[in-house]
Design a protein around this nucleic acid. Structure first.
Lengths: 224, 224
DNA sequence: TGTACATCAGTGAACGCGCGTTCACTGATGTAC
DNA sequence: TGTACATCAGTGAACGCGCGTTCACTGATGTAC
């Protein structure tokens, strides 16, 4: 490599990192039109502007690149969470602030969120496992954060975790739908519906009986 | 074709239908290890036991076969819904009966549910659109069925639809997770968690204020 | 019922193409002195 | 600072392979009389 990266002042490891990033970018760029496991190594290198063989300087195979994408995508999600935690309006207006945070994140990191949504139940086992594991960590963290709400602070951790899972699922499915929507009107409708659903869920929080054995609690429980 | 299907007593169209079914079965059989768009036409025909060229007697391309699978999968889901509607215990014990219905369906039609979960946000645009449309029809039907519950019968149709969407999402995500789980213990844990979540959601139903503008209702709504 | 012809589901050979991976290589960057 | 050598990110040719699609075909099934 000579001046591919105007490398006169770049160290070898810096240049290598640039190529690595180009490969990751390239894979994400190809994802809107394909599942990850139908993207070829040659497509990725072509998109990144390097020869097919250069790929092996960075990853053993495309699956390993996929795992790097999982880490990257959840890295940006954790940053989102940190920002949300620092938002002083969060406890006062949790639903709207959370939704807004996720919407902004989807706009800023569309590729990452599409990757998560697509590969969460996609065709590559190790990617599914890695994504599930990261989502579990995410939900675990969320469960801790939720303790600041008085109504939830008295709940047993397991119940709080169940609640956090429900919020996580709802947010991920909102992101998955937002990523697929082209029109701002479509986005608004998704956001409006998810806001109502989150509101409905939180209405149940006050009436929740902690410690309740779910098997018993479920019996004779209906919507009327 | 001579006796591929012991066809002595089979009409030409019956034999053709058998091959078509074999192609659909073959695609579903290959799905656990792949996304739909990374399965090749030749793999499908190999699995189905016919020559690659025979494929074109039934479908223009694999995408068209995928669309046929969407129809088939949602056909079996509609049958599930009809059975559920006929269950006399449904109104008395809605959450448990619904969950049980879905669990049984996932066991009986694992391939169909995996296909829906995998391709709902998968790499083929037309399949995503077809699945979304079918899920919308499903939720629409569910919203009508939910009117039998006194607490919901007074709700505006739009609110009931929002609620039906939430139930649908929860059930689909339960199915998606069940399909990926190998151990019965894992299944039990998923079912227990989803049961609690559905219970929490229904607890909010009584406190729901119909007609509420979600934008206003969302303000200052938090979990405490 | 028997015969002659039409239909058409499935076949097998052939095509050009993009694939993942290997290999020996190049030449800029890094290091030892 | 200059020189000689080592490292290693990226290259380009080559390989064998499975792919989607075409084509002319076969022979059982269906139909007309």
């Amino acid at each position: 490599m000579t001046s591919r990266h105007r490398s006169r002042s770049r160290s070898r490891s810096e240049s290598k990192e640039l190529t690595r990033q180009a490969l990751l970018r390239a894979a994400l760029k190809l994802l809107p039109r394909n599942s990850f496991d139908s993207i070829s190594l040659r497509e990725i290198t072509r998109e990144a502007g390097v020869s097919p063989t250069a790929f092996y300087r960075h990853f053993d195979d495309t699956e390993e690149l996929g795992l790097a994408l999982v880490e990257e995508a959840f890295g940006s999600l954790r940053q989102m969470m940190r920002d949300a935690r620092a938002d002083p309006a969060m406890t006062r207006d949790a639903i709207n602030r959370s939704i807004e945070t996720v919407v902004v994140h989807v706009h800023r990191h569309t590729d990452h969120m599409r990757f998560i949504a697509r590969e969460r139940y996609g065709g590559v086992r190790r990617l599914r496992q890695a994504i599930r594991r990261e989502l579990e960590l995410f939900s675990e963290e969320l469960a801790i954060d939720l303790s600041v709400f008085p109504a939830l602070s008295a709940w047993p951790p397991a119940d709080r975790r169940m609640f956090a899972d429900l919020i996580t699922d709802t947010m991920v499915s909102m992101a998955a739908e937002l990523v697929e929507t082209r029109s701002p009107e479509g986005e608004d409708e998704i956001v409006r519906r998810k806001r109502q659903q989150l509101l409905l869920i939180t209405l149940g929080v006050d009436r929740w009986s902690p410690h309740a054995d779910p098997e018993d609690a479920g019996h004779d429980a209906d919507a009327s």
